Simulated assay, not measured.
Amino acid sequence: MKESIDLSQILPIIAPIIVIQLILMVIALVLCAKADHTRGPKWVWVLIIIFVNIFGPIAFFIAGRRTDG
C-alpha cells in the first residue's frame, strides 16, 4: 500500500522552518555586512550563510563575529 503525501499535509510543517531560515539568513547577512572585522574573510562567511541553510547563520553568530574590535 503506497500512500501519497499531499502538499497540504507537508506545508504546515515546512513553512515555519523556511521562515526561520530566511529570518536567520537576513539577520546574519546584515550583521556580516556591518561588521568591521570577522574571523575570516567576509565573502567566505556570506557564502556559508547563504549555502549552509540553517546552520550557516548560526555558525556565523557563534564563531564568525569578533567582539574584540
Score class of each variant (00 low, 15 high):
Val30His: 04
Leu47Cys: 11
Val52Gln: 01
Val52Asp: 03
Ala59Phe: 07
Trp43Thr: 12
Ala28Met: 04
Ile23Cys: 11
Ala15Lys: 14
Ala35Cys: 06
Trp43Gly: 06
Ala35Gly: 07
Val26Ser: 03
Gly40Gln: 15
Pro16Ser: 00
Ile17His: 03
Ala15Glu: 10
Ser4Thr: 14
Thr38Val: 13
Val52Leu: 14
Phe55Arg: 01
His37Lys: 13
Gln21Arg: 12
Pro12Trp: 06
Ile23Ser: 08
Ser4Gln: 14
Phe55Ala: 05
Phe51His: 02
Val26His: 02
Gly64Phe: 09
Asp36Gln: 10
Met1Trp: 05
Pro41Ser: 15
Ile20Thr: 13
Ile18Pro: 04
Leu11Asn: 04
Leu47Ile: 11
Met25Thr: 15
Lys34Gln: 15
Thr67Asp: 10
Ala59Ile: 06
Ala35Ile: 07
Ala15Thr: 15
Leu31Phe: 11
Ile49Tyr: 06
Asp36Asn: 11
Cys32Glu: 14
Trp43Arg: 14
His37Ala: 02
Ala59Glu: 01
Phe55Lys: 00
Leu29Ala: 00
Phe61Arg: 03
Ile27Glu: 02
Thr38Asn: 12
Val44Asn: 09
His37Tyr: 05
Met25Trp: 01
Pro16Asn: 06
Leu7Asp: 15
Ala33Asp: 10
Glu3Ala: 13
Ser8Lys: 12
Phe60Met: 06
Ala28Ile: 05
Ile10Gly: 03
Ala63Pro: 01
Phe55Gln: 05
Ile49Met: 00
Pro16Thr: 09
Leu29Thr: 00
Met25Cys: 08
Ala15Arg: 12
Lys34Phe: 12
Pro16Lys: 04
Ile50Met: 09
Cys32Lys: 08
Phe60Cys: 03
Gly69Pro: 01
Trp43Gln: 13
Leu7Gly: 15
Leu11Glu: 11
Arg39Tyr: 14
Asn53Arg: 10
His37Glu: 03
Ile10Met: 13
Ala63Ile: 11
Ala63Ser: 15
Met25Val: 04
Gly69Ser: 09
Val52Lys: 06
Ser4Pro: 08
Gly56Val: 05
Gly40Lys: 11
Leu24Thr: 02
Pro12Tyr: 05
Asn53Glu: 06
Gly64Ser: 09
Phe55Ser: 01
Phe51Ser: 06
Ile27Gly: 02
Ile62Asp: 01
Ala33Gly: 10
Leu31Gly: 01
Lys2Ala: 10
Thr67Ile: 12
Phe61Asp: 05
His37Asp: 00
Leu11Gly: 02
Val30Phe: 06
Leu7Trp: 14
Ala59Gln: 07
Thr67His: 12
Met1Lys: 00
Asp6Leu: 13
Glu3His: 10
Arg65Trp: 04
Leu31Glu: 12
His37Asn: 01
Ile27Tyr: 06
Ile54Phe: 11
Ile27Cys: 00
Val46Ser: 11
Ile27Ala: 07
Leu22Lys: 00
Arg39Cys: 06
Asp6Phe: 10
Ile23Asn: 01
